[in-house]
Design a protein around this nucleic acid. Structure first.
Length: 816
RNA sequence: GCGGGUGUGCCAGAGUGGUCAAAUGGGCAGGACUUAAGAUCCUGUGACUUAGUGUCUGCGUAGGUUCGAACCCUAUCACCCGCACCA
């Protein structure tokens, strides 16, 4: 079996025949299988990649054989930092670096034998692709969904450059080691928050792992509550709370120290101490900030509690997030742990307003009470269960115009701008007269300048004068082009749409085509994208729908998270130095072995420990199949036993592949193969090959051809099972025979006498025929000469009269 | 701290109330074949016991529910992954 030759042969044939290229066909049901497109940073594939791609290919091949029109494309997420870093370090242009990598990766991917439609390859760094990023940006900008505002970025003073989070790890600049500071700079955003509710609610309609949905729900962080007006120095300030039931217990207010209007309420007298406090917090490094406990400072002002009229002090503290809610909270130390800790530290009194059965008293409390109880010290609301009181007090506040219901979200707008070269230029021009001016659509794409200086600090793109200095599209005056580029998540938010129509020159895609193919039926990728890519892509699709460009709500109907491949206790990756390359295995055993092995060791959604030992087993199996099919004698008929087992196997394997229980499916296929007799029918063989095909496409194509078929097994119909042919009687028989064999072997072991050469089996008269059918098997498994008698057989050989022990399904045994 | 997950035999990994001493593969041991090695095939692989039997121990640890638990519940430990003061 020359697997290298076989692989090459079929990969060439597939490519030449274009058999995996698809087009829209209204007569056929479509199925869109997609793996998250890879970032082409590494020019090799390791077992983690092979596992991921095989996972998708098995599904695509399975669905194709089931008669679906399967779209299964591949492409490259080719913009991004690593290429730029390489350019700076080694002096290779990111474009060359990227395109070289893509070439290599593609070569390795093709060697996997996956059934991609290679005519649809896209790379996001190509102008034909990123042009449409710019187009979408302009559309979103028109609708007010793209906007610019100040936001903090990582900044290195020495390099005078913005740093990506990865470059600012540990709060130090990766290049010079300088302390990284947070600096407010103008940044571009997409208004994902506008879609918060849709993003949350539509999760119910998609078939994703619960874990990912939960992560997205938490990330969106919807919390309904009330905004209450507190008066400070005769001015109303809004305060958001989810616990209006505790409003009578407010003993102080806290404003976030980053609140833009903090100094409006700081009194002259307190100014110095507030400033000192801010200085202290600001000088702390990013790392220390996370460990910092709740600290605060009195602002000098007092607020009036709208329901009690009490005057309570207003503090500023680091524990309040300035850009959530109103950036200020009402503190109820008796019923909120954070407020409790703060109050203890600064000796602020507390007031109990929710009283549980076992009475609380402020003196004895060691932590806040956040449970259920009845209201006390709350005026007319006393006696209500606090849960009911929430609603009553909210109504009261609304009636008295002291507050109103609102919903807050944790999710923030999506910051898309990067002060980086290797990305899509943002199509905006700044003009002294006209301000921020979008580039007219017909001037797209705004090409990324190739000749830039990677040596100087800052964003390399800014070194291209021809790029930066342009005329204002509005007034023709002097303009300056935006030098920020879009982060890579913009690219990956719609690439699955481009696959539907990858060569379209006039539009990002033809809606007729996306309407046919979308949504992606089965998306496959790592869980690490739970709240980034998967959220952005959902937002994008929803926004595009509102722009009238598409007709569907969700991009990915089903999602499957593959498990990570580990080795020596760490995730397989180049940086850990524990990679096993695709070629390490394929050279020695062939790629089908690698595929089969990876799919059989464990459930695909679980992490797995790489262990090369097991590969042998998969290799042996493929070899056995190969030898068997080459030498098998073809029988015209098939006996009912095999027929039953075959149909049962088809039934189970079909279900198992559908549910991604690939490991179990393979066990079933192997089990069926083991039960094949020396002679078998072509039909059985062909069905068996079809079941195996998604896992071992090359081997099965080769054997399919050997059986005299001229077409591709890849395009054959998935076998159907016939429930009527499944007969459990055979299974019972098999089990009985197996028991018998075990018994014989058991006796052999007990007597410890290797001299036994013959086994005499005494069955009930009506069972003799059944056991006789298995005589060969019994011989094989016991290594004894087999004689089978019915108990009433007058001529039977039975010197010890064992035959009287015979029972139904349990023949008697005598060894000699 | 919160949320999610995992913990099974020498190893990897199935199994989620009885049919479980626990699939499948690997490793290891023994046997067949062979001049030999390899390949292939068969058997065994918790303990004790037994002409095909029976008993005990056992699925992170400790309890509980049940006629019955690897599987359900409670507590606990370990590891992994997210989020991280969101009022």
């Amino acid at each position: 079996m020359d697997f290298a030759k076989i692989e090459k042969k079929w990969q060439d044939k597939w490519e030449k025949s274009k058999c995996f290229q698809v087009k829209e066909d209204s007569k056929k049901n479509k199925y869109y299988v997609l793996e998250m497109y890879p970032y082409p940073s590494a020019s090799f594939l390791h077992m983690g990649h092979v596992r991921n791609y095989t996972l998708g290919d098995v599904y695509a091949r399975f669905k194709r054989m089931q008669g679906f029109n399967v779209l299964y494309p591949m492409g490259y997420d080719s913009f991004g930092l690593p290429a730029e870093t390489a350019a700076k370090k080694v002096g290779i242009h990111p474009k060359k670096y990227t395109e070289d990598s893509i070439k290599k990766i593609m070569e390795y991917q093709k060697a996997l034998g996956n059934s991609y439609d290679w005519s649809r390859v896209i790379s996001s760094h190509e102008p034909e692709y990123y042009k449409w990023n710019q187009y979408f940006f302009l559309k979103l900008y028109e609708k007010g969904l793209a906007y610019r505002k100040k936001a903090p970025v990582n900044w290195c003073n020495k390099c005078e450059s913005v740093l990506a989070n990865e470059e600012a790890e540990g709060g130090k600049c990766w290049r010079c080691g300088e302390q990284v500071v947070k600096k407010d700079m103008e940044q571009w955003f997409f208004k994902i928050t506008k879609y918060a509710d849709k993003l949350l609610n539509d999760l119910d309609d998609i078939d994703w792992p619960e874990q990912i949905k939960t992560m997205q729900r938490n990330w969106i962080g919807r919390s309904p509550g009330v905004e209450i007006d507190f008066e400070i120095n005769n001015k109303k300030w809004k305060v958001f709370t989810t616990r209006p039931d505790t409003v009578f217990g407010v003993t102080f207010l806290v404003m976030g120290i980053k609140h833009p209007n903090l100094f409006d309420i700081v009194t002259e007298k307190q100014k110095k101490s507030v400033e000192k406090f801010l200085e202290k917090i600001n000088s702390a490094t990013e790392e220390d900030l996370n460990k910092l406990e709740k600290e605060g400072v009195f602002t000098g002002s007092y607020a009036i509690n709208p329901v009690t009229g009490d005057k309570v002090p207003v503090y500023a503290s680091n524990f309040v997030v300035a850009d959530y809610g109103s950036g200020m909270v009402m503190a109820v130390p008796s019923h909120d742990q954070r407020d409790f800790e703060f109050a203890e530290k600064y000796n602020i009194p507390m007031k109990i307003v929710v009283q549980p059965e076992d009475h609380l008293s402020p003196e004895r409390m060691t932590q806040a009470y956040t449970g259920e109880g009845r209201l006390v010290n709350s005026g007319d609301f006393d006696g209500l269960l606090n849960d009911e009181a929430k609603e009553h007090i909210t109504k009261f506040l609304e009636e008295k115009k002291l507050g109103k219901r609102t919903v807050n979200y944790k999710i923030r707008d999506w910051m898309i701008s990067r002060q980086r070269y290797w990305g899509t230029p943002i199509p905006i021009i700044y003009c002294d007269k006209c301000g921020e001016v979008p580039v007219p659509e017909k001037e797209l794409p705004v090409l990324l300048p190739e000749k830039v200086d990677f040596k100087t600090a800052g964003n390399p793109i800014a070194t291209s004068k021809t790029f930066v200095n342009v005329k204002c599209p509005k007034c023709g005056g002097k303009g300056r082009r935006e030098t920020d580029t879009m982060g890579g998540f913009v690219d990956s938010s719609w690439y699955f749409l481009r696959y539907c129509d990858p060569k379209n020159k006039t539009k990002p895609f033809d809606p007729k085509k996306t309407d046919y193919w979308m949504p992606v039926d089965q998306y496959i990728g790592g869980a690490e994208h739970a709240v980034m890519h998967l959220m952005y892509a959902r937002f994008f699709v929803k926004a595009l729908k509102d722009l009238g460009l598409t007709n569907f709500n969700e991009p990915f109907r089903k999602l499957f998270n593959q498990g990570i491949v580990y080795k020596d206790g760490a995730k397989m990756s180049k940086s850990y130095g524990n990679v096993v390359y695709q070629t390490d295995i394929s050279k020695q055993y062939g790629i089908d072995t690698a595929r089969l092995f990876l799919m059989s060791v464990s459930s695909p959604d679980k992490q797995m420990e790489w262990n090369s030992d097991g590969v042998e087993g998969s290799f042996r199996f493929i070899k056995k199949v190969f030898d068997y099919v080459e030498d098998v004698k073809i029988n015209k008929t098939t006996d009912a036993k095999i027929e039953s087992k075959l149909n049962k196997t088809i039934k189970q394997v079909t279900e198992q592949i559908e549910n991604f229980d690939y490991n179990l499916a393979i066990i079933g296929i192997r089990g069926f193969f083991d039960s094949l007799p020396e002679k078998t029918s072509k039909d059985v063989l062909e069905k068996f090959l079809k079941l195996l095909h998604p896992f071992c496409p090359h081997t099965t194509e080769e054997l399919w051809e050997k059986l005299g078929n001229k077409n591709f097994i890849s395009l054959e119909k998935w076998p159907k099972f016939d429930e009527a042919k499944i007969n459990d009687k055979f299974e019972k028989q098999e089990k009985d025979v197996e028991d018998l064999i075990n018994d014989i072997n058991n006796i052999l072991r007990i007597v410890g006498d290797a001299k036994k050469k013959k086994v005499f089996i005494y069955t009930l008269p009506n069972e003799k025929e059944i056991y006789s059918e298995y005589a060969d098997l019994i011989k094989k498994k016991t290594n004894l000469e087999v004689f089978i008698f019915a108990v009433n057989d007058a001529k039977k050989y039975d010197p010890e009269n064992k035959s009287k022990k015979s029972k139904p399904s349990k023949p008697a045994i005598y060894l000699e």
